[in-house]
Amino acid sequence: MQISGKDVGQLAFLSRLDLTADDLTICTKSLNEILGYLTVLEELDTGAVKPALHVRPIKNVLREDALQPGLEREQVLANGPEVEDGAFVVPRIV
């Protein structure tokens, strides 16, 4: 499987990465090398293997609906670069 420069450009956009044309060329090449390496795995016959949705064989980890106190607001906002009226300030998005 090969991916195009256009695919990588879209991926960069979705990841909010600002790549230069050179970056894009390098990334496309590297990603194709990685994908090429993974095709080795396709040679394996997995017909009898059940698909794994999780790496560990554990299921049904649930907790009871019991309340615990949360954080103090001061602690919550401590990491906020900009804070106003008890809330995090973010730039306009749309």
Binding site: R63, D65, A66, L67, Q68, G70, L71, R73, V76, L77, D85, G86, A87, F88
Partner: peptide, 20 residues
């Protein structure tokens, strides 16, 4: 009573960022 993945309250309203 609590959120889907943690034990913070689901109560409506409250001062901003106090139910986390």
């Amino acid at each position: 009573r609590t959120k889907i993945f943690c034990d913070s309250t689901t109560e409506f309203g409250g001062e901003p960022n106090t139910h986390v």
